[in-house]
Design a protein around this nucleic acid. Structure first.
Length: 264
DNA sequence: CGTTTCGGACGTTCAACACC
DNA sequence: GTGTTGAACGTCCGAAACGC
């Protein structure tokens, strides 16, 4: 059903949890907890030199096609895979079973002492995944990755982050970042520092773009025949374009916080 | 060599349960 | 009321099987 070429390209992409109809905008757009290491927009040296196994991320609801093929889906409808296959019209959410209720559970193990469980949780895979807080990069890492993206960067695929050698770069959530910057003016009540041109730094806001909208740069144009120009990725900018001299902004935290866990 | 299938590892969800 | 636990349920990795 699926072709490796396609699936390979499909793999590694990921999207933010989108519970309900509300797309989660809180997920860190570039790196997020649990993001597979090969998807990190950082040089591997910045992530970890050891082959640390990271959490796999899943979409909340795979489409019927991907589900059937046991292949990676995404939150967009039609999903990338279906689009590539040209079966976008068949890309519909799969039905989820209703969870059984009233199931009796055995005795729980007692909490040993106080607050132990909380710290234990921190050890759990889900809590541990990159131990760093979503907004706090490892030492030496820019605090707001997105701010390092050039203005023109609306990549669905992050630059230079091939999922596997020779394969498409990791997929990124179907929202794009546009510099929503205040007009080049001084903000009232500020001394002007960092307010020249942009207040402190240009702010990037995620813009959810329905699939099928004009493809942003770096996003693979889906050819009708489903082929993907393998060379397209060559045009990707380096992973870390030099931060704008305006001094990287500090808003790395704003977009983080999938924490909101809105959907959850 | 490309494509399909699918076993099973792993992630997510959420009601039951424990504790304050 | 809030936090924790743990099993149901879901996704999808990755390898084997299959077809050309």
């Amino acid at each position: 059903m699926s072709s490796p070429a396609i699936d390979a390209a499909d793999e590694q992409h990921d999207s933010p949890p989108a519970q309900d109809l509300q797309p989660s905008m809180t997920m860190h757009p570039v790196a997020y907890p649990g993001m597979p290491v090969h998807m990190y927009p950082f040089p591997t040296s910045m992530v970890s030199s050891q082959p640390l196994r990271t959490k796999r991320r899943q979409v909340k609801n795979a489409c019927t096609n991907c589900q059937k093929a046991c292949k990676k889906c995404d939150d967009a409808r039609p999903c990338l895979r279906c689009v590539k296959y040209g079966i976008a019209e068949e890309c519909i959410d799969s039905q989820r079973k209703e969870r059984k209720k009233g199931i009796k559970r055995g005795p729980y193990k007692k909490r040993d002492g106080k607050g132990s469980s909380t710290s234990d949780r921190a050890d759990s895979p889900s809590a541990s995944a990159p131990t760093l807080p979503p907004t706090l990069p490892p030492t030496g890492m820019p605090s707001a990755q997105m701010s390092y993206m050039p203005f023109g960067y609306y990549g669905q695929y992050p630059p230079g982050v091939p999922s596997k050698p020779g394969e498409a770069p990791a997929y990124f959530p179907p929202f794009y970042f546009a510099p929503v910057a205040a007009a080049p003016q001084q903000l009232p009540g500020q001394d002007g520092e960092g307010t020249q041109g942009y207040p402190v730094a240009p702010q990037f806001f995620p813009i959810l773009t329905p699939y099928g909208q004009p493809y942003p740069p770096y996003m693979m144009p889906h050819r009708l025949d489903g082929q993907v120009p393998a060379t397209s990725f060559a045009a990707y900018p380096p992973i870390f374009p030099k931060p704008p001299s305006t001094g990287g902004h500090t808003d790395g935290s704003s977009s983080s916080g999938k924490a909101g866990e809105g959907g959850n």
